[in-house]
Design a protein around this nucleic acid. Structure first.
Lengths: 218, 218
DNA sequence: TAATAAATAGGTGATATTACCTATCCCTGC
DNA sequence: GCAGGGATAGGTAATATCACCTATTTATTA
């Protein structure tokens, strides 16, 4: 038989980590060569053994898991990284892939999905959920043709200000007051934001805004 | 040997659940008699076999785990419940114990701590972290004077849920849908929250809620 | 047992928000 | 020098939300 694929598992919840380890061991082609609960432990583990693939929880307390991905990729570019996160993929998946990860799975997924993700990443492809795949493709092609990338970066300054205030819990009238504008103007900005980010409905916009502000503030 | 202690494991993250199951199986006196990922599944599992102890994640998506605790205790008062939560004990532990749970552990705790908690609960005592134990004692004896303190702790369970959803950007109608309640009820809870926290106006409540959720999630 | 609190929800009128549209004025790059 | 985007805002009709009230049922507790 070929050499086993080696795994580094990074998660600050010991029991979840144990679950992942058990999952990996369920396939005899795989072997765990390191475990870590913090960024510091991860770096120590890497000195001891460099894995083929690392499963990383990006919601590590204290430090951001994305930083770990960057550090890891900088030191060992050949290591594949699969992010396992309890946070909504809509907000974090793209960021994680940009940071060098090769896949993104949510923690609530079934074991079979995780194994699928692992196999996909090992085979050299990128793994994200089907929904996310569509979304990312959409982003990419609308960026080419209509320059309508559904990304916060495409928002104008004022639109961004409005998004920020919405994310802090301000309503339309309050936003208007704070920004010293007509409610109508704020309304128009909200409309533009929804259009640019391809968000349907005010509720979805509010929830997106809250999450965005949170993620931005780390 | 005596009959094994039977466990029901309720958690909507399959891999974490598997980790818990592995943990339980590591002690030959323990046996898993049921697993569930949702409240509905839990109730089905209970029809099939009543466990000695249930390990319950209170942050189940969709419905609140505290409700499950209450339902479970109502139907089977003899079942011990140990809450395993990813949320800060400071906010939820007291509530969980009041709902009938016999212990509260955070998900990031080590396997040994979880086993300790399980043993404590099985022995008939209540388990909380040492820090929390002190805090609860403190609360108990200093509760005399300022019973009018405008603090989130004074909110009822349902009110807290509503505050949480508002803080995530849900509007009244959406909150009602998520919680499976009438908009009128959600409205009433909002009113109560504003009264208890001495917050004037819906805008101020939204902003407070957003900040509170952020601070709670660190 | 009486009182209190929690969970639930209906009623009502005043206001606010939304979803679309249209329409200025002002820059900036081609 | 004009097309396109950004900043600004008015119009309108359909909903939704808010702020107060009242009310029932069920627990809990003094």
């Amino acid at each position: 038989m070929a050499d086993p694929v080696t795994f580094l598992v990074v998660d600050d919840h010991p029991v979840f980590r144990q679950g992942l380890v058990a999952l990996i061991k369920s396939d005899e082609r795989y072997r765990v060569c390191g475990e870590a609960g913090t960024v510091a432990e991860s770096l120590m583990a890497l000195e001891h053994a460099v894995p083929d693939i690392a499963l990383v929880d990006i919601s590590l307390v204290g430090q951001n898991g994305l930083d770990l991905v960057k550090t890891l990729k900088a030191a060992h570019p050949e290591v594949l990284v699969l992010i396992i996160s309890m946070h909504d993929e809509v907000i974090y998946a793209e960021r994680a892939l940009k940071a060098g990860a090769r896949g993104y799975v949510m923690k609530q997924e079934a074991a079979s999905v995780m194994l699928d993700a692992i196999e996909t990443v090992l085979s050299g492809r990128i793994y994200v959920s089907a929904t996310m795949r569509d979304r990312l493709l959409e982003t990419m092609f609308s960026r080419r043709e209509e320059s309508e990338a559904p990304s916060v970066e495409r928002l104008s300054d004022r639109e961004l200000e409005v998004l920020e205030l919405i994310g802090q819990g301000y309503g339309a009238a309050e936003t208007a007051k704070v920004m010293n504008l007509s409610v109508k103007t704020v309304n128009a900005y909200s409309d533009h934001i929804k259009e640019k980010l391809q968000i349907a409905g005010s509720g979805a916009l509010r929830r997106f805004a809250v999450k965005w502000v949170q993620s931005r503030d780390q």
